[in-house]
């Protein structure tokens, strides 16, 4: 089981902020496929330029492994200041 968080615009697109999932196999790309399975708009939004993911608060790539209890965050292009 992993905890999934969406930030910024991604949350508005998906209509949720947080959920728990059981991806199989346990990689970031498998998790993406799972949360986008019935949501093409989220799938498009995650593929937009500048979108990044963090696993346990470290920036991650599609092949990054997930562990039981991992916290995964999907983040749109960052804009502070």
């Amino acid at each position: 089981m992993v905890r999934v968080l969406l930030f910024g615009k991604l949350r508005d697109v998906a209509g949720w902020r947080e959920k728990t999932c059981t991806p199989d196999p346990a990689t970031l790309s498998a998790l993406k496929a799972l949360i986008c399975a019935d949501d093409p708009a989220l799938s498009r939004a995650l593929a937009a330029p500048g979108v990044q993911a963090a696993v346990d608060r470290v920036l991650a790539r599609d092949d990054s492994p997930l562990n039981e209890g991992s916290e995964v965050a999907f983040m749109p292009a960052m804009s502070g200041g």
Binding site: K9, P76, M78, S79, G80, G81
Partner: peptide, 19 residues
């Protein structure tokens, strides 16, 4: 800070909200 720090900014404008 403008483009590499984890912040997301929503503007509340006259035409509604936008990221």
């Amino acid at each position: 800070l403008k483009s590499r720090a984890p912040f997301w900014k929503k503007e509340h404008g006259p035409d509604g909200e936008h990221w």
